[in-house]
Design a binder for these strands. Structure first.
Lengths: 218, 218
DNA sequence: TGCAGGGATTTGTGATCACATTCGCGCATC
DNA sequence: GATGCGCGAATGTGATCACAAATCCCTGCA
């Protein structure tokens, strides 16, 4: 779960629904091709069509959902080419975020990253795809937050969002014992303060998922 | 104007309004800090509040507009740090797009780019900021379309969108005789098929705008 | 057994309304 | 003359409804 603090803040209905759906999509709780209807979601969450429409519209704008010609929204089924593009974006953006975070990465942060890594390993052991994706993204986000670059981080999160349903379908069938191999490399580069090594490790981590994919010839 | 072909296609009202506003924002027809109201736009364009709300929501999601805590929408006033981030994103993404377009950049494309460049120079001569921005973006988009990478291009356009109002404010006061210096470098790199030179030229072109900015200590 | 037709249902779109909050501006007070 | 107060106007939010289009399913025919 990401950053759920105790909030007495009362947020608008459309925003709550947006965050809920966004979270579900990003961690892969929805499969590619799943259809979403305005009235269905409205009834499911006890609101009217208006806030549902707004949150769906927003998610479509971010690429988290796709819109058919007739206006129906569904979770996207990405083509191979699109997945490759998104992986390229990750490999362009995330090393930069990591490099920006490096000067500010102290012990406490590295410890937290290690802890997240442990949780990630547990998710692998349990074959829990959703937990795996969530802890994996948490690892990256926790590091990148230190970059103090909200605009760049926002773009990275948008890319994650677009990959969400596909990652689920992917990691669901990979099922290998992959403990986050590259995450260790990232941690040691952080400890050593070695920026080139850090950039390489992040790039390798980010593109490793893609590699599984194209080998299987989707 | 971008890609207006003869379309008998009847698009939804919210989508038409979205495209209209997006275009205005991207080319800098709106100044930073300008406020937009639901009822105001609804009356102005002869529709109800509903489609206005949807298009504004979408533009906010893309970062083209900002949302105050009370829900008011206005065109963003970017901080220096945010501008620097967006420039970094451009310098990361656009060289990649250019490199992908390079193998497919034939004579006809280079001729079109030269023509756009000429129009750009005319805009400079007339001190027409909006035309300058429009032709400048057209130059980049025309090249990047050849990359056949819609997902990456979409991210680049989102960044342009976020920079729109600021670019207007910036170029409005630069007013120098800058004929697109780096554009020539891009064209010759394209003709030579020299990918490293192309990447460098694009990066230089993209970050040159920022340079003016930070020199003036906004 | 497969396929085309048609009607009922589902679905998105846009309009309108009530309500609570916020904003803006003038007035009174110090 | 400056500042805080309060009221009216303006604004976003969410609900509901009418309508048109798309979809789905079932029936009948080849």
């Amino acid at each position: 779960m990401t950053t759920i603090s105790t909030r007495p803040i009362e947020t608008a209905a459309h925003d709550r629904l947006y965050r809920l759906l966004r979270q579900q999509i990003m961690v892969g709780e929805m499969l590619p091709g799943q259809a979403l209807t305005l009235r269905g979601l409205a009834k499911q969450y006890g609101v009217s069509m208006t806030p549902v429409r707004e949150s769906l519209r927003r998610l479509v704008a971010e690429g988290a959902l796709t819109l058919t010609a007739s206006g129906r929204v569904s979770t996207p089924e990405l083509s191979n080419e699109r997945i490759e593009e998104l992986a390229t974006l990750r490999s362009l953006i995330e090393p930069e975020l990591a490099a920006r975070a490096l000067p500010r990465a102290h012990f406490a942060l590295i410890d937290r990253l290690s802890a997240i890594n442990t949780a990630n390993a547990e998710a692998v052991a349990k074959h829990d795809a959703v937990s795996y994706i969530r802890t994996n993204l948490d690892f990256h986000r926790t590091l990148y937050l230190r970059a103090q670059s909200p605009a760049i981080l926002a773009v990275a999160e948008t890319v994650w969002l677009q990959l969400g349903p596909t990652m689920r379908a992917l990691y669901g069938r990979v099922q290998r014992n992959e403990p986050p191999r590259h995450h260790r490399m990232i941690l040691s580069a952080l400890r050593a303060g070695d920026e080139p090594a850090l950039r390489l490790a992040v790039r390798a981590d980010v593109t490793s998922g893609l590699r599984h994919l194209s080998q299987r010839g989707w």
